[in-house]
C-alpha cells in the first residue's frame, strides 16, 4: 500500500499508530507549517514527502480541563481563541495570546503546534516557560509529562519522540497573590512578530515571593530562562530579596546581571542585537527593581 499524503485518524490511538508507521507530520492549525513550507498559488506546499497527520479534530487534543490540583490542562490542538475564552486561563498566558497575532491566526493556531516548532520567538511558549508549564506526550510506550524547558532543546528542536505526539499542556491556574508581567516589543503593535517577548510570573503572599518564573524570547537560540535563578529568589521577603539583589552591584542588581549574562541576541531582519540587549535590560530592571520590590513591600495598587 502506498504512503498516504494526508492522514485523518479517528482517535488518538489511531493517530499514534499512524505517527509511528509513517513518520507522519502532526498538523492542526497549519499556521506555522503552511507559512514555513509556503506554497505558491495553485501548488502544494513542499512538505518533504512526509505525510500530514491531521489532529485538529481529535476530541482528546482539543479540550480544556482542571485537574483538581490547581492546574489547567489544555489540549495541544486547542485553538488560541478557545484558550483565551476559557475563564481559568492564567492571565500571563492570556496576555501573550492576546498579543500574539490577529483573530484569524488565533482561530487556527495551537500551543501544540508552537511547542512542536520550537521557535525561540513564540510568545505563547515564552509564557509557558514563565508559568513552568508541563507538557504531556503520548507514544506507544505510554505517556510522559515533561517540563516545557526540558522539551525544547534548540531552535526547531525538541525531545518529542518520532512516535510521540504532544497531547496537552498543563499550567498552574492563577490563585490569590499571583502576579504576571508581560511585555512584548514587536515589529508593530498588532499582528506582529516579537523582537523581544518578556514574561514573568509568580506569587506574592504575605510579603513572600514564591514560584517566580522569568522567560525572555527572541534573545537567544531558545527561550532564555534559569531555574537556578528562580530558585535563588524562592521564598524571599523584601529584606532577603534586597540582599540577593545586592550580591552584584550591577545596574538592576544580581538578578538583572545574571539574566543579562544568559542572553545572546543577534541582529536580523526584525531588530538589532544592541536593541534587544538594551530593552531586555530595561525590562529586567523594571521587573527586578520596581515591580517585585513594590509587590513585596505590599504597596501594589
Amino acid at each position: 500500500m502506498s504512503t498516504p499524503a494526508w492522514i485523518r485518524p479517528a482517535t488518538l490511538k489511531e493517530a499514534l499508530t499512524m505517527r509511528r508507521d509513517y513518520n507522519a507530520r502532526p498538523l492542526a492549525g497549519a499556521t506555522d507549517i503552511y507559512v514555513r513550507h509556503r506554497a505558491a498559488t495553485g501548488t502544494l506546499p513542499p512538505l518533504e514527502d512526509r505525510p500530514v497527520l491531521y489532529v485538529g479534530h481529535l476530541p482528546e487534543l482539543t479540550s480544556i480541563s482542571e485537574d483538581g490540583k490547581g492546574w489547567l490542562r489544555i489540549g495541544a490542538a486547542t485553538v488560541y481563541t478557545d484558550i483565551l475564552e476559557h475563564p481559568d486561563t492564567p492571565l500571563l498566558l492570556r496576555r501573550a495570546i492576546e498579543e500574539l497575532a490577529a483573530p484569524a491566526l488565533r482561530n487556527a493556531g495551537t500551543l501544540g503546534g508552537n511547542i512542536g516548532n520550537a521557535s525561540p520567538a513564540a510568545d505563547a511558549v515564552c509564557a509557558l516557560y514563565a508559568l513552568h508549564a508541563e507538557v504531556d506526550l503520548a507514544g506507544h510506550a505510554g505517556e510522559r509529562r515533561v517540563p516545557i524547558a526540558q522539551l525544547i532543546t534548540g531552535p526547531g528542536k525538541t525531545t518529542v519522540g518520532a512516535d510521540e505526539l504532544i497531547t496537552a499542556v498543563s499550567v498552574p491556574m492563577d490563585r490569590p497573590g499571583s502576579f504576571h508581567y508581560y511585555r512584548k516589543a514587536g515589529t508593530r503593535r498588532a499582528n506582529a512578530l516579537s523582537k523581544i517577548a518578556f514574561c514573568a510570573g509568580g506569587t506574592v503572599l504575605e510579603g513572600r515571593l514564591t514560584g517566580l518564573g522569568v522567560a525572555v524570547g527572541a534573545v537567544g537560540p531558545t527561550i532564555v530562562h534559569s531555574r537556578d535563578l528562580e530558585v535563588r529568589a524562592e521564598g524571599s521577603d523584601l529584606a532577603r530579596y534586597r540582599k540577593l539583589q545586592q550580591e552584584e552591584s550591577a545596574p538592576g542588581g544580581f538578578l538583572t546581571a545574571r539574566y543579562m549574562a544568559l542572553i545572546s541576541p543577534i541582529s536580523d531582519q526584525r531588530s538589532t542585537d544592541a536593541y534587544r540587549r538594551r530593552v531586555t535590560e530595561n525590562l529586567l530592571r523594571d521587573l527586578f527593581e520596581r515591580t517585585i520590590p513594590t509587590l513585596l513591600s505590599g504597596k501594589a495598587g
Binding site: G29, V52, L105
Partner: peptide, 10 residues
C-alpha cells in the same frame, strides 16, 4: 481564518 495557509483537508 486565513484560507491561504489552511490545508483544505482541515
Amino acid at each position: 481564518i486565513d484560507s491561504c495557509i489552511l490545508p483544505a483537508g482541515a
